[in-house]
């Protein structure tokens, strides 16, 4: 095989696979009776036009033309659909601190895909040390998508809202820029567009979507959105697929599983076996992001210092 596989094979095939799964479900739906366990991916915008193709066993079969694209188009969602979220799902993330060496790939992927303003980031990797004699560790944070989100409580205009799938999103076309949510969020996760965001022409002219969080708008807040647009496409959030160490695991708590693409775990077992916890539990915010403690680490803490900007190399315990 002449594939020039440079270690990102795994990642690519991972994505492609999900699409395959999509087609397969269609096939199951097409050829079996009402045994279909889940409704076929209702997400895809079917074109109604069919294309003929050759099957593995030499049959000629038909599929919708929409599937001819590497990633089938999704129908554009209305604002009210974006506000409701995906029924039956409840997203959850697990961040395994024992695997993190501060590579910041999650951060750069996220910043790149969302055109986050230079200097700001939605994913942050903190250099943590809880007390003087305790061990330092690297702690990536995203928005916690709290189940009792203080940021949503205080928003005066429903510009930030919680959906039935657990995701907390922002409607930048509604936000008045009061920044109360920033003061309310104990995880310092929100950033503000202090000036007109630097965006490529074709991005800036797009209509803002809460699910993609693109394009960011001057005078409104932004933050990690758990990439529901990627999930709709059958892919994983950018930070999850960008991390070469598999630190981020993403999934649906209703399916009781989380995955980083390469490995998939049963969520309840993982949390039990590794003593998962959430940040600032005492505040009652009920985050959707769980952490696995930095024990039996894959990398020594110091290996992460290489990626730290010079002025921050000195540890700050907080």
């Amino acid at each position: 095989m002449s594939c020039n596989c440079n270690g990102n094979c795994e990642k690519n095939s991972r994505r492609e696979f999900l699409l395959t799964g999509l087609l397969a479900t269609m096939a199951v739906a097409g050829c079996s009776d009402d045994k279909t366990p889940f409704t076929p991916e209702e997400n895809v915008a079917l074109s109604g036009e069919k294309v003929k193709l050759l099957s593995v066993d030499g049959q000629v079969i038909e599929v919708d033309k929409a599937f001819l694209k590497p990633v089938p188009d999704l129908p554009t969602l209305s604002n009210s659909e974006e506000r409701k979220g995906m029924p039956g799902k409840k997203f959850v993330m697990v961040i395994d601190l024992s695997r993190c060496k501060n590579l910041k790939k999650c951060q750069s992927a996220c910043n790149h895909m969302h055109f986050v303003h230079p200097g700001q980031s939605w994913v942050k990797i903190y250099q943590m040390q809880d007390a003087e004699h305790t061990a330092p560790y690297w702690q990536p944070t995203t928005c916690m998508h709290c189940d009792e989100p203080p940021c949503v409580k205080v928003c005066p205009v429903d510009a930030t809202f919680k959906r039935q799938d657990g995701i907390v999103l922002i409607d930048s076309n509604r936000c008045i820029g009061c920044r109360f949510c920033m003061a309310a969020c104990p995880y310092s996760t929100r950033v503000f567009n202090w000036e007109t965001p630097e965006l490529p022409e074709e991005v800036a002219s797009q209509h803002y979507s809460s699910e993609t969080s693109v394009p960011q708008i001057k005078g409104t807040v932004g933050k990690c959105d758990f990439c529901p647009d990627m999930v709709r496409k059958g892919e994983l959030p950018h930070c999850v697929s960008a991390c070469p160490n598999g630190v981020f695991l993403f999934g649906d708590i209703n399916e009781d599983s989380v995955t980083n693409g390469a490995e998939t775990f049963r969520f309840s077992d993982l949390i039990k076996d590794k003593s998962g916890y959430r940040l600032m539990e005492d505040l009652g915010t009920k985050p959707s992001v769980y952490y696995l403690p930095p024990v039996n680490r894959n990398f020594p803490f110091e290996s992460g210092l290489e990626n730290q900007p010079a002025e921050e190399k000195t540890g700050s315990h907080h």
Partner: peptide, 14 residues
């Protein structure tokens, strides 16, 4: 770098 991959799904669609 160009990479090609063959996929078959449920022994049918390829």
């Amino acid at each position: 770098i160009v990479k090609l991959s063959y996929h078959s799904s449920n022994n049918s669609i390829q």
